[in-house]
């Protein structure tokens, strides 16, 4: 595998009072590689979005560091940070809130181009906007003059993706990009993310609670609970042969048409939810490789 373009190295972030800490990230380490998608799954409150915000530099780590092209970001110059912001882009969960209702689609795409490619003249900018819209499979002539409210949820999410692509990023962080969309629209967005990865060689971090969609887009997967990555590795290996009790609990709770409620195969985990949650929430520094490219942080059974 190629070197990680962006990596978190033992990053921790804690919120709340000192006597009642909330561990949003606990010694989190992972790398994002060009042309690959890494999925981060977990229930709400597990720290998924905190990981995204650490990458976007909305939060600074309490401990640990971010590495961009192998260099620590903490010591980076202002110029290097601007390059970082252009290289790492985000697609948000809510396509209704992510776009400004008072601006046209053209404006949304023109702004990042003006900021990061100031040398383009207006004709070149228009051409770039047209290319972006075509890339996300929207009709440029039709969409450019429109306002966000005139678009469907799926179209808006495509605009969000186009906006992220406008600055030629190398990394895209997509935080639940399909959870607010209808089933029949979701697949189009997932296919678009897959195309971006393949055609542009982007490194993707795909954050979701929907494990089936993670399996569709990601080569690798991480399962997070209470700020800690409890199991990670090759997506197929983790999902078909989960080794950590929390991963098994999560998988047994995920809606799955192949398993009726009356099917008791996974009821063992569901019967000891409290125990698994309590144990998974404790720091587990030890790492064990359970299969090729498949790791867990073991907890007592």
């Amino acid at each position: 595998m190629s070197d990680a373009i962006l990596a978190l190295d033992n990053v921790s972030k804690t919120f709340g009072r000192a006597d009642k800490p909330v561990y949003a990230a606990r010694s989190v380490s992972f790398g994002l590689h060009p042309g690959r998608t890494l999925a981060l799954v977990g229930e709400s409150g597990s720290g998924k979005t905190t990981a995204a915000r650490l990458i976007m530099r909305e939060y600074t780590p309490d401990e640990g560091q971010l590495l961009f092209r192998g260099k620590p970001l903490g010591k980076a110059s202002a110029k290097a940070l601007k390059a970082y912001r252009a290289s790492v882009q985000m697609v948000f969960q809510d396509p209704f809130a992510a776009l400004n209702p008072t601006h046209t689609i053209r404006y949304h795409l023109e702004r990042p181009l003006r900021l990061h490619q100031p040398k383009l003249n207006s004709k070149e900018r228009t051409a770039a906007i047209e290319e972006l819209l075509t890339r996300v499979k929207l009709d440029p002539a039709l969409l450019m003059p429109k306002y966000p409210h005139e678009l469907s949820g799926g179209q808006r999410q495509r605009i969000s993706i186009a906006r992220a692509l406008a600055v030629n990023p190398q990394v895209i962080v997509a935080d639940e990009p399909t959870s607010m969309l209808d089933v029949s629209v979701r697949l189009g967005i997932l296919n678009l993310l897959n195309d971006m990865k393949a055609q542009l060689g982007l490194a993707l971090l795909y954050i979701t609670h929907d494990i089936a969609t993670a399996r569709y887009v990601a080569e690798d997967i991480m399962v997070m609970y209470a700020g800690q990555i409890v199991e990670w590795g090759d997506t197929e290996s983790v999902l078909t042969n989960p080794q950590h009790p929390y991963t098994r609990l999560l998988l047994s709770a995920v809606p799955d048409p192949d398993r009726r409620f009356s099917d008791t195969r996974f009821s063992e985990e569901l019967n000891r939810i409290e125990f698994i949650r309590r144990q998974s929430a404790l720091p587990r520094p030890e790492t064990r490789e359970v299969a090729n490219n498949h790791f867990i942080r073991p907890m007592p059974e």
Binding site: K137, R186, L187, G188, A212, Y216, V254, P257, D258
Partner: peptide, 30 residues
């Protein structure tokens, strides 16, 4: 689930990624 009759029901299933087994094919509907 197993033998949907209506084209729309079939399309809904074809657009849902699977948790295990054979993955749906890309472009079933986009």
């Amino acid at each position: 689930y197993r033998t949907p009759q209506h084209a729309y029901t079939k399309r809904l299933w074809a657009s849902m990624p699977k948790l295990h087994g054979e993955q749906i094919r890309e472009g079933a509907k986009s």
